[in-house]
Write a protein that binds this DNA or RNA. Structure first.
Lengths: 206, 206
DNA sequence: TGTGTACATGAATGGCCGTTCTCCTGAGCC
DNA sequence: GGCTCAGGAGAACGGCCATTCATGTACACA
């Protein structure tokens, strides 16, 4: 049951070909990097003409910004829902947040890689906006860590950087995970949830 | 005592300007990415002429390969020495390995970023070589984890991916650490060594 | 003194890139 | 029918890029 067809990141936007173009751009930027991929590549991938791209996005850089906004939004949505559905104690909340994050990384490996590697190519204004959105997601994790530290369930002497460490490990999954490898999506999420709790010196199941 | 002048990654190679060129290339690739940086940028950074670069390296791609070989070599050397100088038990060995790795990331942030983000732009042969070198460094960590698991000191039920998780967290430091921030190099290394031991569910000091 | 070799340079060359321009089509609406 | 407007296409333009070429200097060494 491992062979899910790779769900596109962007589904529907109201404009006829926008989603197709965004997904093609994601693929192109993921394969060759922002500077390595040309607008011609994106057009080819989207099955449209080079000039038509400019009917949707005013520049290559704004196209990247749009792709990253969709990726970030989807991640933020998944993590937020997971935390909302979890219990009130920090360990369960952290567990569900990590599981959701790992799920996103596995479902959208390319988007994760592009989001971490290509942000720097945005113009300053877009970069600032995107970084602040990313920081908001990170803050979700930091608040949970703070809560657990305050409650005394996370005993690490270094709670300040723990969220960053956890998120770094999770994001790195995107650079080695293979869908046809030995680990299922669920097993991987389970493992990393435990890694996170252990790193925080929190309560471990079993 | 935090303001160390950034030691260049490459020090001396026997050819007159090779080190200068390699360090300039590292800087250029780090700032703009492999495809975003031009050979003209590298030449300017090295204070030499565009065409002279080709007296040292046959192509831009081989130049990147040389940069990455130096970065990887330095990391591997530091980790190997640290492990050699450590005790024989897995926890001390892991602790020293992590401390050395964090030290490298802090001392050579740009090299770490380039090494993780730009490997994919090498031609296949160089990429294969570089990846196998990187895997060798990773294997050092994996062996320590295996040793600790066999000895019963690392109790994590998932020792198989733990090294990857730790290395992912450590590499991510390069994308947020600031020399003038609140954490010294040594404190950071200490923190991450503890994170690593905790993640493995190993013995914790104090 | 002559010869090879390492290092260095400025000027091409051919190609691709982002972007723009001009034009075309078809659907919705008066 | 006539108008608008979103969506679409091909051809061009100016610019930058990796690489090569022709040429020059200076030093080692026979």
């Amino acid at each position: 049951m491992n062979g899910r067809s790779p769900e596109p990141l962007v589904r529907n936007t109201g404009r006829r070909n926008e989603a197709t173009i965004l997904n093609a751009a994601l693929q192109a930027f993921g394969t060759s990097g922002f500077n390595g991929a040309s607008m011609r590549d994106v057009a080819k991938g989207a099955g449209t003409s080079l000039s038509n791209l400019y009917n949707y996005f005013p520049s290559k850089s704004k196209l990247l910004a749009a792709v990253l906004r969709h990726a970030n939004g989807e991640l933020q949505r998944r993590v937020a829902h997971a935390v909302d559905d979890a219990g009130n104690d920090a360990p369960s909340r952290l567990r569900e947040a990590v599981r959701a994050h790992v799920g996103f990384v596995v479902d959208h490996q390319v988007a994760t890689l592009v989001a971490t590697n290509e942000v720097r190519y945005l113009d300053p204004a877009d970069r600032t906006e995107l970084v602040s959105h990313r920081d908001a997601t990170q803050a979700t994790f930091e608040h949970i860590v703070d809560q657990g530290a305050a409650d005394g369930v996370f005993c690490t002497p270094y709670p300040g950087d723990a969220a960053r460490a956890i998120l770094g490990a999770v994001a790195a999954i995107a650079s080695w995970y293979r869908q046809d490898g030995p680990l299922s999506r669920g097993q991987l999420a389970e493992q990393y949830a435990r890694y996170a709790l252990a790193l925080l010196e929190g309560p471990l199941p079993r």
